[in-house]
Nucleic acid binder design. Structure first.
Lengths: 131, 131
DNA sequence: GCTTGATCCTGTAGTGACTACAGGAGGTAT
DNA sequence: ATACCTCCTGTAGTCACTACAGGATCAAGC
């Protein structure tokens, strides 16, 4: 049974965010000590840690929450989890592709710009260029 | 001189967002017709279009705004624009790298999970795994 | 016993960058 | 005249936190 500060360190979720998850009902309310301080079990930490990882993987909180809920049932619906994960992989792939295009565009802009021009053609080009 | 709906179509910035930019002082207040409707010039559209492109490139609004301001001076400070752009390229590269790691992780999870397991080991693994 | 400083509590407000109304006025086509 | 569309202002909601304010409690050193 550990306090919120230590729970934060072990799970990687900030103290404020832990309390936020509790307020939002994303994690169950933990036990309390006589002095009203929250007390966390290893299970609680596990839940927070899973949430952290899912959020880091870019799942929106609502989806992370669903997956957490799914994981609570022992005979959990693997299919449902898979569906969410697969959809998310597609999202991520799209994002990577977009960012790569973006990176190329930015590099081009910068290299064009660095030719000793007075008038920074970079912004002018962005302003008038078609997509 | 065109109305906000057409300005939105031409610049790619939504009507609500155009008004938001005006409220926030990011673009100058446009002229008004006798009936109080906003009227946009080609210049105004240019500004909105530049903003749109910078935002699409992932610049935070504050930076996009700075770059827009820089572009308003004819002898604009190319160096300053370059600095912003270069810093941003580094950010983008980092983001791409992170997303790629994420994609790999997700794919691994899904492929492990699809082996006819009842207990969806995916979430269990995420829950206990170390980074 | 007392002080200092860390940790915790609740509750509220702020962030970024929009987005979505509500409620009304003005314009256009039949 | 009747619809229906576009526009207006102003306010509130979104997501996922984050940052206080103002106070209580605890652990360690003197």
């Amino acid at each position: 049974m550990i306090a919120i500060g230590e729970a934060s360190k072990r799970s990687g979720v900030s103290i404020e965010t832990i309390r936020y998850y509790e307020r939002e009902g994303i994690v169950p309310r933990p036990g309390r000590a006589a002095n009203n301080r929250r007390l966390y079990t290893a299970d609680d930490i596990g839940r927070l840690h899973l949430l952290k990882r899912l959020r880091d993987l870019g799942f929106p909180l609502a989806e992370a929450r669903m997956m957490l809920d799914l994981s609570e049932n022992r005979a959990s619906d693997c299919e449902a989890v898979m569906e969410l994960a697969k959809a998310h992989i597609a999202n991520v792939a799209t994002k990577i592709a977009e960012l790569k295009k973006l990176e190329t565009a930015l590099k081009q802009l910068v290299s064009n710009c660095s030719r000793g021009n007075v008038d920074c053609p970079m912004l002018g080009r962005l302003r008038t260029e078609q997509d």
